[in-house]
């Protein structure tokens, strides 16, 4: 009964959208080791909601002193506006555990991030918020960088059902993702709900403490 109730409420509360196939405009951030302090600078961590962080994404790089867009920041170019896929370099998301980083990316419109590697906590936080982090080889990422810069408004299709990244002009890369995370993302499953199905086991564990 209690479980049923939490099921109902949890489904209603669930904010995570399933990720199956996504086609979107690609933007680039040509920098390795981008840390969470750059993704969302700390002066914006004081909000107590999950939303509204998008305007502050990459704030110190994106905006000049007078808060106008920095023309030297590549993502600000007109051709990248409306992008939903970010291609970037190694060790993206290193630093703090702040989930404000994926919230800011999501709020900005990013649904998937492609990089040669990700930092651990950030990678995990992405899945919890319906963002797909895709790990491709350094060479594949380099190819994508070239393609994005050569072709105006370059789009990619990321298919989580087939584990493939494809472009219209014939690029195709397959990627690996942990089967459980994939399953949860495909179905938009809420972790808490999944865990509560093991209530009996949690109770049994607690009874031996």
């Amino acid at each position: 009964m209690a479980l049923e109730r939490s099921f109902r409420l949890s489904w209603k509360a669930m904010t995570m959208e399933p990720f199956k196939v996504h086609n979107g405009l690609v933007t680039v951030l040509d920098m390795p080791n981008v840390d969470t302090d750059q993704i969302i600078p700390k002066q914006f961590l004081k909000r107590i909601e999950r939303t509204g962080f998008g305007p502050f994404l990459f704030y110190d790089w994106r905006f000049l002193e007078d808060q106008t867009p920095n023309p030297a920041f590549e993502m600000n170019a007109a051709r990248y506006q409306g992008a939903t896929i970010l291609v970037t370099r190694t060790n993206f998301g290193c630093g703090s555990s702040r989930e404000h980083a994926p919230w800011a990316l999501l709020d900005y419109g990013i649904k998937a991030i492609i990089a040669p590697s990700f930092a651990d906590i950030f990678y995990n936080n992405c899945f919890k918020n319906g963002i797909l982090p895709v790990t491709l080889s350094t060479e594949a990422v380099e190819t994508l960088f070239q393609a994005v810069r050569e072709k105006h408004r370059f789009h990619l299709t990321i298919n989580l059902e087939t584990n493939e990244v494809k472009s219209n002009n014939g690029l195709c890369f397959s990627f690996d993702v942990d089967p459980h995370r994939r399953h949860c993302l495909l179905n938009g499953l809420d972790d808490i709900l999944l865990t509560l199905q093991h209530e009996d086991k949690i109770q049994r564990y607690e009874s031996q403490l």
Binding site: A13, E49, E99, H180, I192, E206
Partner: peptide
Amino acid sequence: GEPALIYIDCHLVHEVTSPQAFAGLRIAGR
């Protein structure tokens, strides 16, 4: 094929990373 469910003996909470978590509990009535 799933991650393990592990028991947590001690959970420390601070003001910056917790408000949205408590809000989530409230919405779900947990």
